[in-house]
């Protein structure tokens, strides 16, 4: 187990380094941010000075080496706009994003698990048809559009929930549903197909044959075995949720790290975007590791030796 963990962590570090490099390259393709920082009327010398201060006048490879060196010391640079260390800016907003992600995950599970289970059990019935249709709709609906519709219906017309912000639990409902609804579609379909597969297994027939109540068959034998692939999907969906936060936080004016990143992209605040990408990547790596470790709990056959 310890060896497995060490290998996984080593692997995680390598991936993080790769992410750092990709973030660097992508953002430098986007153009020179100097001109967005100087007012009309700045002299060419002033522009040159600012570029020099930022190190943007050095060859790209040297900028890269300096960047990686600093990154390894935990210094991802200083924001061009905020003039503060970027890691602090991102981490300051990390809990808000995690809170939204947790709410979205809860919405996703509350919607997807019952829908998937009932669809599987009542396969090809009317409920199944409707649920599968809904799942497809959820999967194909753009988050942006869905969010705006929720704001207009529940925020403006009905006034049940605030249209934006993060104050109080009510403010979390609409962004949570927007983000959770988006991932609920795929998850519903996964739960359904996993359960259908399990329900066809010999041990389910055996369980029924020995006279177990159908509820016991469903909850104890079928669902537990279907849980494994579902956990994998949930782990995968968590990274989708963090990505989806980019759009959701922006629409709902939600004060998380993804909104900070969107704003930084618009301002070409390179270091902030880099820090966001790194923090998001590390979060996903950690989540995946946790998911893999959860297999041990869920399936006694799996051990990491």
């Amino acid at each position: 187990m310890a060896r497995y963990l060490a290998a996984r962590l080593g692997h995680g570090v390598l991936v993080t380094l790769a992410v750092l490099s990709v973030a660097f390259v992508l953002l430098h393709l986007a153009g020179d941010p100097t001109y967005l920082l100087v007012p009309v009327g700045a002299s060419p010398e002033e522009i040159q000075n600012i570029r020099h201060q930022l190190g943007l006048d050095q060859p790209l490879w040297r900028q890269y080496v300096n960047y990686m060196k600093r990154a390894l010391r935990g210094d991802l640079g200083t924001s061009l706009r905020y003039n503060q260390p970027v890691l602090g800016l991102v981490l300051e907003r990390f809990p808000a994003t995690m809170k939204l992600t947790a709410v979205a995950l809860a919405v996703m599970l509350i919607v997807a698990v019952p829908l998937g289970v009932v669809s599987a059990v009542k396969r090809n019935g009317a409920f199944d048809q409707i649920a599968t249709g809904l799942a497809l709709l959820g999967q194909s609906m753009p988050t942006f559009w869905f969010g705006i519709v929720l704001i207009l219906v529940f925020g403006v017309s009905l006034r049940w929930f605030p249209t934006s912000g993060s104050e109080g639990w009510r403010a979390l409902v609409l962004p949570g549903v927007t983000l959770g609804g988006y991932t609920a579609g795929l998850t519903t379909r996964m739960v359904r197909s996993c359960l259908i597969e399990v329900l066809g297994q010999d041990y389910i027939r055996t369980a029924r044959a020995k006279g177990l109540a159908e509820r016991m068959v469903l909850y104890k034998h079928a669902l537990r075995n279907a849980a494994l692939p579902v956990v994998t999907i949930v782990g995968y969906q968590l990274s989708t949720l963090i990505g989806g936060a980019l759009v959701t936080e922006q629409i709902f004016g939600y004060p998380g790290m993804a909104r900070l990143a969107v704003q930084a992209i618009n301002n070409r605040d390179f270091p902030v975007v880099q820090a966001f990408v790194v923090v998001a990547a590390v979060t996903v790596l950690v989540i995946n590791l946790v998911v893999d470790l959860m297999y041990v709990l869920l399936d006694p056959r799996i051990t990491y030796e």
Partner: peptide, 18 residues
């Protein structure tokens, strides 16, 4: 002073009386 980056959401806040 509230910060609402998305234009349509800002307009929604006005319509909702927020």
């Amino acid at each position: 002073f509230r910060a609402i980056p998305e234009t349509s959401t800002r307009m929604a806040a006005l319509k909702a009386g927020e």
